[in-house]
Simulated scan of single mutants.
Amino acid sequence: MANWNDTEQRQGFGSVPRAGDAVTRQETFDLGLRKHMLSIYNYMASGVLLTGIVALLTARTGLTLALIGSPVLWIVKLAPLAFILAISFGLNRMSYGTLQVLFWSFATAMGLSLSTIFLVYTGESIAATFFATAGAFAGLSLYGYTTKKDLSGFGTFLIMGVIGLLIAMVINIFLQSSTLALAVSFIGVLVFAGLTAYDTQRLKTEYQYLRGTEFAGKAIILGALSLYLDFINMFLFLLHFMGNRE
């Protein structure tokens, strides 16, 4: 008598994958992607929050006033750049824990550096600009995450825009032109708005190559750093428009 159960079991060997298997794999991928992106957003939001708290406390305690005119101010201003360079050039040699420490140290250094805005703008206008930036960032990041349009072609253009902004800002240190400063701020908002959508899509796309690798944990912190920089720069450029001076 034929063993029909045995026949059914053998049919699985070399057979065409069932549609249900593909659906399960896709659901597993989507779940992993959401967890990956949520981790990036949690790190990014926590970094921004830490920066804001440090900036506010530094300004309210009078430490910012003590730094004005002191050589230490330059160290405080350049410290965030030092952390970014350290992360960029030492990434492959760093452990996940070391990268975490550098990220939080960077966010703290940015808070010390940004504390000077409380001496220039009113607290109300800073708060209003922050929430406006948060709303714009959320919308732009959602667009980058959900759009079917490939934004990778804008990457080079946006990076060139950042370089152009840096050059214009250095030139304006000597020219002290209010018109040029306004133009830089306007273009800066557009560039970092574009980078927010671009970086979100890039981080989403990269997940398929990173999942399951040893680098996945580091990629979360690097992704958070990218979005953090997009947020902070968009906030600062927007503050030039919305901020009311003391």
Score class of each variant (00 low, 15 high):
A86D: 09
V120W: 06
I159V: 15
L151T: 10
T147Y: 12
R211F: 05
G212M: 01
A82T: 08
A197I: 12
S185M: 10
R211G: 00
F131L: 15
A181E: 14
T108N: 04
Y209S: 11
V101Q: 04
V170C: 02
Y207P: 00
Y143T: 11
A79Y: 03
F106M: 06
G161A: 06
L102T: 02
I171K: 13
N92Q: 13
I84M: 05
V184S: 12
N172C: 10
A216M: 05
L158R: 09
L114K: 02
G135V: 09
F106N: 04
T196A: 08
F118C: 11
A132D: 10
V120H: 10
V191Q: 09
L180K: 09
A168Q: 07
L78T: 08
D199Y: 11
G161L: 04
K77S: 07
I171G: 11
G188I: 04
Y198L: 15
S141F: 13
N92W: 09
P80R: 01
T156S: 14
L165T: 10
L78H: 04
V120M: 08
K149A: 14
A109V: 05
I173L: 15
G139H: 11
F130P: 05
A138T: 15
V120P: 02
L180V: 15
V162E: 07
E124N: 06
L102E: 01
S115N: 06
L175G: 05
Y96W: 00
Y145I: 08
L182D: 11
T129H: 07
A132N: 09
F186R: 06
L78Q: 02
F137C: 14
V76R: 03
D150W: 13
K77V: 07
S125Y: 09
L166E: 07
A109P: 04
L78P: 03
N172R: 11
S88N: 03
R202Q: 11
S152I: 10
A134T: 12
I87K: 07
L151W: 13
I75P: 00
L203R: 03
Y121R: 02
M110G: 00
Q100R: 07
F157I: 14
S95V: 02
G139A: 14
L91H: 09
T108E: 00
A197W: 02
L165S: 12
T179N: 13
A86S: 12
S115V: 03
